[in-house]
Design a binder for these strands. Structure first.
Length: 210
DNA sequence: CACTAGATTTTCT
DNA sequence: GAAAATCTAGTGG
């Protein structure tokens, strides 16, 4: 767990981003390891947010029909082919943004879709954009998370391995937490692709998407 | 609770 | 021109 004080202004903001090497591994390995890590989102000096990742999915390239990178590079998916540790943010269903992070060994494209997180700090700023009654609705889905953290196309391609408007820092699981794995949610592709257990989540965590 | 329809626009075939 | 790594509001039990 990240050891941070209760209020936004008293946080030590000189946090160290996760290094590039963290993302330079097989997507499904990074997807597993990224559970428990923290997303840091800085809008300005007053409005900063932290959320802890509780659900993520790995996507590969050529041999993964469910992946955007399956048919080679395009105008949209190019961050999956670039260096690991960069944001891949795309627009879908006419209204939603998806927050992904490029993650792969050198010879392979790949990315991690961040599907859900639990608010740690700056919940009031998340609630400004997410008009919901229950706090669990703030970030329990990929489009909800992106909206709560104000992640959109302007952040596409951003290097997440240095301090800036968006980066990731370390985090861990509690002794009581268990990571589960299973098929990815609503992905296209053949039966093999749909059954690959490359979705990971914290068992019984209320912020995991349904 | 379970299930369905509708929103809305980019992307690639 | 169809489909899309989704969400919400609405219906009905």
């Amino acid at each position: 767990m990240l050891n941070v004080p209760e209020t936004c202004n008293s946080v030590k903001w000189e946090l160290d981003p996760l290094p590039r090497e963290f993302y330079a591994r097989l997507p499904e390995v990074v997807a597993r390891d990224i559970i428990g890590k923290h997303i840091v989102r800085v809008l300005n000096d007053e409005r900063r947010m932290i959320a802890r990742i509780v659900e993520a999915e790995g996507y590969r390239g050529q041999e993964d029909p469910a992946s955007h990178a399956f048919r080679g590079p395009t105008a949209r998916n190019y961050p999956m082919f670039g260096p690991p540790g960069h944001a891949y943010v795309y627009f879908i269903y006419g209204m939603h943004w998806m927050f992904n992070i490029s993650a792969h060994p050198p010879e392979m494209p790949g990315a991690i879709l961040i599907r859900a997180a639990e608010p740690v700090l700056g919940t009031e700023w998340m609630a400004e954009r997410r008009k919901v009654s229950r706090s669990v609705e703030l970030t329990n889905g990929p489009a909800k998370l992106a909206q709560a953290l104000e992640i959109d196309g302007t952040l596409n391609g951003l290097d997440l391995c240095q301090r800036g408007p968006l980066f990731l820092v370390d985090g861990s699981l509690t002794a009581a937490e268990e990571v589960m794995s299973g098929p990815r949610i609503r992905v296209p592709g053949d039966a093999v692709a749909r059954h690959r257990p490359w979705r990971f989540w914290i068992k019984d965590n209320p912020y995991v998407s349904r």
